[in-house]
Structure formats: C-alpha cells, structure tokens
Design a protein around this nucleic acid. Structure first.
Length: 877
RNA sequence: GCGAAAGUGGCGGAAUUGGCAGACGCACCAGACUUAGGAUCUGGCGGGUAAAACCGUGGGGGUUCGAGUCCCCCCUUUCGCACCA
C-alpha cells in the first residue's frame, strides 16, 4: 500500500534472531535460574528455524470441504523497514488467522508488496541505486522482519507488484478496460505535484496539497492523460455502501461524501444579446445551469458563471476590462484553493453586461461572473436565488441584487402566514409567486418543474457527482507501463495481448525534470504499429500505483497463474458472494485504495471474471501507533523501532504489547515500560509451565479435570471464564486488550493457587488440563512462547490446528456470590452467599449484617430491590 | 459552520444489557529471598480521614431505588466534510 505516512522511514537494522550462544546479560552462574528464565531470544530462535523448515504450515488448502476464511492485512509499501503501525496491523490479523485455524477453518492469510512507487525513484536519485534493486532489497529486509515477528503468512502466494508476472496483468486489465470503454484518453486540467513531478488523482489531493507533500500546493496543468471511468459506477458504489454493514460507519460516510451524489436539474438559459447585437456573435448561445432547487427558479435574479466558463471567455474576448476582472477572480479562486479554504473565500463578482432569459417566465436576468463558482462541479454555472440560498443571499446583499421570495413555510391558514427569515433554505416549504407552479410543496414542485422543463426541451432532471474519473497516468518511471502505442497513421493503438508484458526497461536515467523518464529511452519509445507495421511511439507514462493495489488480493488466490490474472473458480471459492472475510488496515485508505478496489471488483464482475459485487465483506481500521502524544516521526525523534523491541523483549512481547496497550481501533500510545510488563507476564507463564510441565504426563491432558479440591475448582472456573471472554471478543468486538488482561488474571489465579493444588492427590492431570488450555488461549497472541510450552507439555499435535478450547458454562459458574448491599443506593456492605441463594435468604443475611444494620438503624425500610445474583438495594426513610 | 467519535487515578486503559467505578498493566511504596538485584515472589496503591463519614468518571441540570452508562444544555480534543449550487 502506498504509505500515506509522511514521516520518513527509518533505516533498517537487520534482526536475525540471536541464537543460543547469545551472551546473557545477567551473567548468572546459577544453573537452576537459567532453566527457569524466560529467554525469548532462545525460544524464538528455535521456532524461527523450525518454521523456516516448514513453510507449508501456513499454506491455505485448495478447495476443501472446510469452511474458508480469507483474512487479509493491507500489503505494505517496501520502504525499507517495518514500523510499529505495521506490527500492530499484522498482529491483529495474525491473531485472527491463528484463531480461525484453531477453529477448523481453511484460512487464507497471504502477504505481498505494493512495490511500485515514487520513493524508489527518489532513492535512486539520492543513492544512485536502481529502483528495482532498492525495492527488492527492501522487500528482503522486511520479509525477514515479518518472519522474525512470527507472522503466519502463506509465502507461497507472495505477490510483488513491481515484477512483470504481476504487472503484466495490470496491462492486460488496462486493455480490457479500453475495450470496454472504461479507459479513455482526454486532455484536461489535472493536478500536478512539482515535488513528485507527476500528475495526481483527485483522491491524492488533500486541501489543495499533495497527499505526500503536505506543504506543497498542487498546480493545475492542461495535459492529455489516461482516465478510468470510475464515474460509470458512481451510483452503484454509493448504493452498495448501504450493504457494507461490516465496514466502519466512518469509512462509509467518507466514501458517500467523496462520491457526492446530488439530485437536481439542468436548465438552459438563452443568452440575450440585445437589439444591437443581432446578427453578431454566437447568437442563441445558452447557459446551462445545474440546480438542486428548480422549485426556486422564479426567484432567480441573476446567473453566476465560473470565471473559467467558456462563455465568459467569449464575452470577454473583445472586452479587455472584463478580461482583467475575470482574471482577478480566477486568481482569487486559485489562491483560496491553494490555502485549502475555498469555503471561506471572500465573494467577488463582476457583471458581464449581458442578460439571460429565464425559460420559466421569460424574464431577463443579468449574467455575472463570480469567484465562488467552481468550473469543475455541475456545469460551472448557477442560477442565483438569493432568497433561498445562503451563498446567493450573501452575494446579492453585497452587490444589491434583487431578492425575491418564492418559498414560504407551510402553514395552517393564510392568517398565520409570516415572512420567512432570509435566506430561507428549507426543503419543506411551499412555492409562491411561481406562476402555474405556485402553491406546491417543495418535493412536488421539484418533480413537476423538472418535468415541465423536459417537456418544453429546455431542461431535465439529472444527477451530479463530485466523484471524477480516475486519472491514472503518471509521468514517472517506477510503475506499470501503459500498454498503448501512438501511430501517425492509426492513432491510438493498444498493444496486442500476445505482446504483453510491456517490460519496464531497467537502466533508465531518473530525473524529476523533463517529463517521463521512459521518454528518454529510445529502445522503449520506438515501436512498430501492430496495425500498419509502420513506426509507432510507445506511451511513456506509467500507471498510478493504486492500480496495483486495486486487485492484488485476487491474485493471492492463484498467484502463479501465467495465463490469466487468476482463475475465476478459485477466486470465487475464496471471495464467495461477499468478498474477503476480514480486511484490516489503516483508515488513511478509506477513500483512495478502498474506493478504487471496489470499482475494480465491479469492473471485473462486468467482464465476467468474478461474481461478487464487493471485494471486502468486513473491514477493520486500526488506530495509529503514537508516542508521547504525537505520531511517530523522525523529526520528533519518537520513533520506536520494531527491530529494537524484538531484540530487547522478543517478538511475542512486541506483538502482545501492541494488542494489550489499547483496543485495536483506537490510537495506541507506545510506552517502553508497558512492553516490559508484558514481557514479565510472558515470563510468569513460562516459569509456571517450566515448574509444572514435568509433573504432568502428556495424554493426561486430554482427559481434563476433574477439579476436586476447592483451589482446583477455583482455577477451573477462572479458566472457563477466560475462555468465554477471549472467544467472545474474537467473535464480537475485538477488544484484544481485555483478552490479554483476562489471560493475565488467569495466570495470577494460577500463581496464588499453585501451592494448594500441588497438595491434591490428582493434581497432575488437572495441571495438564489447565496448562494445555492456557497455552491454547495464548497461541493467537504469542505464538513463539505458546509453541515452546506446547512442546514442553509433551504435546505432539500441531498447535495451529489444535481445537480452540470450548467454554463450559457449568464449570464457569461461581459457587459463592458476593452480593453488594446498598442502602439508598450507597454501598454499605458486601455479603457472601451460596450461588443458589434465593431473594429471601439474601435479604435475611443482608439485614443481619452489622454494617447494614448500622446504616438502617432508626429508619424505616420502604422497599427492597434485589437484582438476582447482582445486587441488593434497601431503600429506607 | 455541519457531522461523527472521544473526555474515567500519576500513566496506558477496564466496567459488553442502568447494578461493587478504577479490572489488567505501568509507575510508585513496603516486605520476603539475597553478598548483590535493573531478577523473582508477596502485599499496598483515586482523593480524604487516626479510622470512619464524606468526595470522586470534562462542567451544569434531570430521570431512576440506583447513572461513567439514559435525557437536556454547555466546554474541550480528535477525525471527516465544508461556498459542491
């Protein structure tokens, strides 16, 4: 995923696990202490080696009778090193994958590299390293980090987007898009980031700034570019958001806003050139306005045009004074956009001196040009209705334009009718002064007036979107070459499918000036037209890297297919009807990646490649990892390196802490002392099992309890309560921080009852049972330690496939209850009663309690409220 | 300006449905074990008090036997949207 993280990536330090020979820093001479010491480095080195030997452990099975589960974390951009955000993201996904494995699912849990992109080119310029080399080197480093962290990925399906076996399918898709009329080339004003030295998609511009360079204002340039017709799916993209119940509401809202659907009408106003213009100019020219309030058209008292509107150009052609004023308006608008506060622009406008005719009443109204009208929304022209629109009202007040009321609040009778406070913008009013349309309710008027305009041929109901087509041309080197040719004779010619891939040449000089680097590679540029055999010029722009990530998760299902991007049947198995079961990543992709991916899936469905309408059924957006209240960044010096954490505390501790420190959907404030606590906890678990493993026999474990003594029963209760808490969280709200707390509590109880249980005659099978379950509970969160302990317990079954413990409500039930007793809502005492006590008994015991007696003495008991098993409240007066 | 989420000890955070506020962890304090401890184990730890009472979940009202949780008003923070006609 292209990182939206603006902080610079830290340099890598390779973190191969330290082996057994690692020097102990405690210098202990005590052999016994050595045995009991939780040595994360030793344990993790051992399992790291074993897992390296058995990569098939995490391989998804092909089509089986098992239920499938596709869990996916957003793939990283190979910047050089993982950061804590990655660790958190992948720890969540890995815990879920392991949990699902243990629940008997056929789990697909893949990983790959979103490896095209600008940083590789910047690195090339700075260090004179070819992008390919830099990128592949980074991938190797980060892959090693992931393995060291113990994430259970099916590496046999690894996808690397910068390699030809992947990007050839980008090109193949592009040809399909072109065939289907979904890819087209057009000249238009586009966003240009001077630092990236390339065009950006609208989605990559934030408040007029580049998404990667937030200090850099994006320029507008007129360029010919390739676009993907995402707008064809605007309505479906919007509609299907309602179905995505497994997505955070926040993300759905952001996408709704981005698509920006708006129902309204187009209305043609004929320009009136006046008597003396007869026979001159573009007589009969019309201005088409877009309005969502056609019901207010009788209140229109001017037309406002965007300063870039073509008619403004015509009108200003012979009018230097107007031209100058319009240029001023353009400058003001641009400045506001660059400052990101177009919303607060000081409204200015100039009259053109011309008039337009309102087709509803034949009225002549003045045509103005105004700086608050945007050329890229609607038609770039509006009818101004000051009485019923805030902006128009403000503008009319400023320039003394007529304000005419045509909407009134709906009232019971004419006597109660009052003048509305202006601007009166309700959608729930009634028309007046609107000719034959007077007296209609707003909704009715909207519909009837649009219909009228359509019948008379000067307008129609329409829908407008803010969403624009996706500009994918990039004037950069490190991306997928767009497989198109330009022939003098045949024009635009697609590269034939059989000639794919168009290979990205390797030894290319990269600069940030002078246009697309590929344009300077004659061997690349010069080609032959497949139609006429004559000379042709190759397209030298590359594709936006968001193309790569729009469909990569389908490739995982069939990663080595060399005849198609993937096999439809295989993809259908993993995607089902509703897509990836669980997708996990940062909220920064709420619009970019996640809207492009949805578009791509719909396009692939329409070409018959997939049958699902949506790529992702459930989406989880995790919070950021921050430190000292601020986002980690090099400049603040608060970056925590995963390598350092792994070296100091171990991968299990780093992972467990990233789950424990906060609920996963909230920001996590990293504290080094916090990870120490988690490491201590892992040590407590280790030592408990180290002391008790040999007292138990493997095999006895499977028999389970039964717990006979009181201490054993208490541990058993706690165990089952813990199973419930952890299982419920996986199924529901994903508060893994409380799962970890629950397991910590269980271990605390084990410690306090350990001695007492040791005295039981049948302690061995019971301890085996408890420890086995403890390890199973820990397995999704701290896999290294869990595997080590599993082995210490003599288990031979694969831990990953061992069944998840089952909760037994009977065993979890408390034998005694502590009932808080309140007097008038204030806690006065806590009484202990047998679990099966009835109300009468509880009340009796409460009234016999000294503290309760003291609190009610001399008062009269009015009422007793008993919440069974929970609480007793005695009301006195 | 509009919309959403959040505000709880010194800190990270619990309290899933209106029912013991502060689970779990960190930090801190004390004790044990020790030549030693940055290891480990045990205990304490919201404020207040000798102990109680009492006060405490951003502030102010309300509903209720009972409110962190529900309702009304306000404040702060974060995020999203913002002349989109």
């Amino acid at each position: 995923m292209p990182s939206t993280d603006k902080s610079e990536e830290t340099a890598v330090t390779e973190s191969e696990p330290a082996g057994n020979g690692r020097r102990r820093d405690d210098g202990s001479k005590d052999d016994r202490a050595k045995e009991d010491r939780y040595d994360a480095q030793r344990i993790e080195a051992k399992w790291y080696e074993r897992w390296k030997q058995t990569p098939e452990l995490y391989a998804a099975e092909p089509h089986t009778a098992k239920k499938k589960f596709y869990v996916l974390e957003m793939l990283p951009y190979p910047s050089g090193a993982l950061h804590m955000g990655h660790v958190r993201n992948y720890s969540i996904g890995d815990a879920l994958a392991r949990y699902m494995w243990m629940n008997g699912f056929n789990v697909l849990h893949p990983m790959g590299w979103d490896s095209f992109g600008l940083p590789a080119e910047n690195a090339a310029i700075q260090n004179n390293t070819p992008p390919r080399q830099w990128t592949l080197g980074n991938i190797a480093k980060m892959k090693a980090q992931m393995k060291r962290l113990g994430f259970a990925y099916d590496w046999s399906r690894e996808v690397t987007t910068c390699l030809p076996d992947y990007y050839r399918w980008n090109q193949w898709f592009f040809l399909k898009l072109y065939e289907m009329g979904l890819a087209y080339r057009k000249k238009s004003l586009v966003n240009w980031c001077p630092l990236c030295a390339t065009v950006l998609a609208n989605e990559q511009v934030v408040n007029g700034r580049c998404w990667r360079h937030e200090d850099t204002v994006v320029e507008q340039r007129e360029l010919e570019q390739w676009f993907l017709r995402i707008t064809k799916y605007a309505d479906e993209l919007l509609r299907d958001l309602d179905r995505l119940e497994g997505w955070p509401e926040k993300v759905r809202t952001m996408q709704r806003n981005w698509i920006g659907r708006s129902e309204g009408a187009l209305v043609d106003f004929k320009l009136d050139y006046g008597e003396h213009h007869k026979g001159f100019g573009p007589a009969g020219s019309t201005i088409t306005v877009f309005t969502t309030r056609i019901d207010t058209i009788f209140g229109a008292t001017s037309i406002q045009l965007a300063p870039q509107h073509p008619i403004v150009g015509d009108l200003a052609a012979g009018n230097p004074d107007l031209r100058a004023k319009v240029d001023q308006l353009i400058a003001e608008q641009r400045k506001a956009k660059e400052q990101g506060d177009i919303g607060e622009i000081e409204k200015h406008g100039v009259p053109t001196g011309r008039y337009a005719i309102n087709p509803f009443n034949g009225e002549k109204i003045p045509v103005w040009v105004a700086n608050y009208i945007l050329m890229d929304y609607g038609t770039g022209a509006i009818m101004s209705v000051p009485a019923h629109d805030e902006r128009d009202y403000e503008f009319a007040k400023k320039y003394n334009l007529e304000i005419r009321i045509v909407i009134l609040p709906i009232v019971e009778s004419e006597e109660t009718m009052t003048e509305p406070k202006l601007p009166f913008t309700t959608h729930d009013g009634m028309t007046i002064n609107s000719g034959q349309f007077s007296g209609l309710a707003t909704a009715d008027a909207l519909q009837k007036m649009a219909q009228y305009a359509e019948e008379r041929g000067f307008g129609k109901a329409t829908v407008t979107y803010r969403l624009k087509d996706w500009g994918i041309s990039r004037q950069r080197y490190w991306g997928t070459p767009i497989p198109m040719l330009y022939c003098q004779k045949d024009g635009i010619v697609p590269v034939p499918e059989k000639d794919l891939p168009v290979i990205l040449p390797e030894h290319v000089e990269i600069t940030l000036t002078g246009g697309s680097p590929l344009g300077r590679v004659p061997e690349f540029v010069n080609a032959t037209c497949p139609k006429c055999g004559g000379p042709a010029r190759r397209e030298t722009d590359t594709m936006d890297t968001f193309v790569d990530s729009s469909w990569y998760f389908y490739r995982y299902t069939d990663a080595h297919n060399d005849r198609a991007p993937f096999d439809s049947k295989i993809a259908q198995y993993w995607f089902g009807d509703r897509g990836i079961d669980q997708y996990i990543g940062g909220v920064e992709h709420a619009i970019l990646h996640l809207i492009y991916s949805r578009f791509w899936t719909k396009f692939m469905r329409d070409m018959g490649l997939v049958s699902n309408d949506e790529p992702v059924e459930r989406l989880f957006t995790q919070g950021m990892v921050i430190k000292d209240g601020a986002k980690m960044s090099k400049s603040l010096g608060n970056v925590v390196s995963p390598d350092e954490m792994v070296a100091r505390y171990g991968a299990d501790a780093a992972r467990l802490y990233s789950l424990f420190a906060a609920p996963p959907d909230r920001d996590l404030d990293w504290q080094d002392s916090g990870i120490e606590g988690v490491q201590r906890f892992l040590g407590r678990v280790f030592r408990f099992v180290a002391r008790n493993a040999d007292k138990t026999q493997a095999g006895a474990a499977a028999l389970g309890g039964p717990a006979r003594s009181a201490p054993a029963r208490q541990v058993q209760r706690k165990l089952h309560q813990t199973i419930k808490r952890v299982t419920d969280d996986f199924k529901g709200r994903w508060h893994f921080n409380t799962c970890v707390s629950a397991i910590m509590e269980l271990v605390n109880v084990l410690y306090s009852e350990e001695e007492a249980i040791a005295k039981d005659a049948d302690s061995a099978p019971f301890l085996a049972y408890v420890q086995r379950n403890l390890v199973l509970l820990l397995a999704p969160f701290a896999p290294y330690l869990a595997h080590e302990l599993w082995e210490m317990l003599g288990e031979t079954e694969l831990l990953l496939k061992a069944p998840w413990p089952e909760y037994d409500a009977e065993l979890a039930k408390e034998e005694e209850l502590q009932i808080p007793v309140q007097v008038n809502g204030k806690l006065r005492s806590i009484i202990v009663v047998p679990a099966d006590s009835g109300e009468q008994f509880v009340v009796e015991r409460a009234l016999a309690d000294d503290k309760v007696k003291a609190a009610i003495s001399g008062k009269q008991v009015v009422k007793k409220i008993y919440v069974p098993g929970k609480l007793l409240n005695i009301v006195v007066k």
